[in-house]
Design a protein around this nucleic acid. Structure first.
Lengths: 231, 231
DNA sequence: TCAAAAGTGTTCCGAATACACCCATGA
DNA sequence: TCATGGGTGTATTCGGAACACTTTTGA
C-alpha cells in the first residue's frame, strides 16, 4: 500500500530533548538508532507523526514507545526545517523539550530493551548525534533556561521530596552560574509554592536537611496571578 | 505526475501573522482565499512548503507571492498540529509572526492584485478566519508581547523617523495598557538605541516633536550585552 | 488666546545583591 | 573532634512606579 499526492511532501517528524538531573550534571536522553539513516548512531527520541494524532500526541506516543516514560513537563519549542537536515530525505521536525525525574526513570529503564543513555549537556559534542540533534538539544536548553526563570517548572526534575540545597543546585546547573544560598532561599520560599514537610534527609554524613515538596495547588494559584522567578 | 510514499504524510504548510500599526490600532493582514477549502473566506497569508526550500524560506516566498512585502522582522513561534485544524485534509502548519511598516505597505498594496485587508486584532472574531487562524493570530500577539519586552523589535512597526510619542503609542497598543510618559522616555532613551535627529514633525497643529531614528548599529551592540526593555 | 501635545525631575518603595557565622550530625 | 553541609539576617544599591506643571506651536 502506498499513498500518493499531486505534490511531493516533506516527511513530518517530532523529536524531544528530555532533560534529567543527576548528582553529576544536567543530562539529555539519547537512544541508539536501530535503522538508517544514521543506523547505530545516537539521536534524540522521536519519530513520525501519524495521520490520526496531533503533533503533541505524536511526541508523547513516541516517548512512550521509545523510553517508557511519562514526562512531567513537555513543551514544543521550535520546528527545524532546513532542507538537508536529514541527508537521506526531506524531513521537517517539530521539537519539544521535556523534564524527567531521573529517580523515577532508573526503574523503568531496566524494563525497557532500547539502548538509552543520559548524556551530559557539556559532553554532547563527543557523541556526534545524528541529524541536527545537537543543535536541537542546544536550543532546547536555551529555551529551558528562559522558561525556568518565568515559571518554577524545574521542580519536575527533582524527586517529589527534596531539600532546598537540591533545588538550588538544580537552578545552578541549568543556569550555569552560582547562586547565593541565603538569597535563593528567601526568593524561593517567598513564591509560596513549596510545602515544608515534617521530615528530614536520612543517611547523610552531616546535619540532615529539611525536606520540601512542590505544592501543585499553590502553584496553580500562583501561576494565575503571575509567578516571577527571576533568580 | 504524483508522488507516492509507503506511509501517509500530513501536508506541511506555513502561515504568518503580519502585524502593522496605523493611527487606529494594531492590525493583522488577512487575504481572501481563492481556492477551497474556505474559498472566499479570509485567512492569514501562507502556503505549502516545497521540497527544495527550508521552512523559513517557504514563508518568505509565500509572503512575497501573496503580499509583495519584505518583512522587517519575521520569527517562527509555534507549529499547529491538531488533527482536524484543516477540515478537508491533514495539514500541519508552522506559524510565524512578522512586523511590517504600514507606511511602506500602502504603496505596494496598490500594485498587487490580491485582496488583502488589515484587520484590527480587537475585531478579529468578526472576520471568522479560516482554519485555526484566529488562534494562530492570537498566540502570535502573545508572543509578540513577550518578545517586545526583551528586545526593542517594535521599531520595525514604525516609519524610519518617528517621535517618542509614536513609540510610546506603539508599546501601549501592543501591551494594551497605558504607560507613563516620563518613565517611558527615561527608559527608552537609556537603552541607547535611539538616534535623535536634527528634525521635527511638520504639519501638526501643536508643538512639533523631535524626530528619532532607530540606530541599528547601536542596537546590535546593545543586543550582544543583553537588552532589557521591561517597560 | 486657545487647544493640543511636547517636554522635563524628584521622591518613594520594593526587590536584588552582597556578605559571614554558628549549628547539627555522622564518621 | 572534625568535616560537611544546614540554616539564618541586615545593610546597600538599583530600578520601577508614581506623580504635575511649563513650553511650544498652529489654528
Amino acid at each position: 500500500m502506498t499513498y500518493s499526492y499531486p505534490h511531493p511532501r516533506p516527511l513530518l517528524t517530532v523529536d524531544a530533548a528530555l532533560f534529567g538531573l543527576d548528582e553529576e550534571d544536567l543530562k539529555v536522553l539519547v537512544i541508539k538508532r536501530a535503522r538508517p539513516p544514521f543506523e547505530n548512531r545516537w539521536a534524540l527520541p522521536g519519530g513520525h507523526v501519524d495521520m490520526d494524532e496531533s503533533v503533541d500526541e505524536a511526541v508523547r506516543r513516541e516517548l512512550r514507545e521509545e523510553t517508557g516514560l511519562d514526562v512531567a513537563h513537555l513543551e514544543q519549542f521550535h520546528a527545524f526545517g532546513a532542507v538537508h537536515r536529514d541527508p537521506s530525505r526531506r524531513a521537517v521536525t517539530v521539537a519539544y523539550y521535556g523534564l524527567v525525574r531521573l529517580s523515577d526513570f532508573k526503574v523503568k529503564a531496566s524494563t525497557d530493551a532500547k539502548e538509552a543513555v543520559w548524556v551530559s549537556m557539556k559532553k554532547l559534542p563527543e557523541w556526534a548525534l545524528a541529524f541536527d540533534h545537537q543543535e536541537i538539544a542546544t536550543v532546547a536548553l536555551e529555551r529551558l533556561r528562559e522558561k525556568v526563570r518565568r515559571q518554577p517548572i524545574g521542580f519536575h526534575l527533582l524527586p517529589t521530596r527534596f531539600t532546598l540545597s537540591h533545588l538550588q543546585r538544580l537552578y545552578q546547573v541549568i543556569l550555569d552560574r552560582d547562586l547565593d544560598k541565603r538569597n535563593f532561599r528567601k526568593k524561593v520560599q517567598s513564591l509560596g509554592v513549596l510545602k515544608a514537610l515534617d521530615a528530614v534527609q536520612k543517611g547523610v554524613a552531616h546535619r540532615a536537611a529539611r525536606l520540601y515538596a512542590f505544592d501543585a495547588r499553590k502553584y496553580r494559584e500562583a501561576s494565575k496571578r503571575g509567578v516571577d522567578f527571576n533568580i
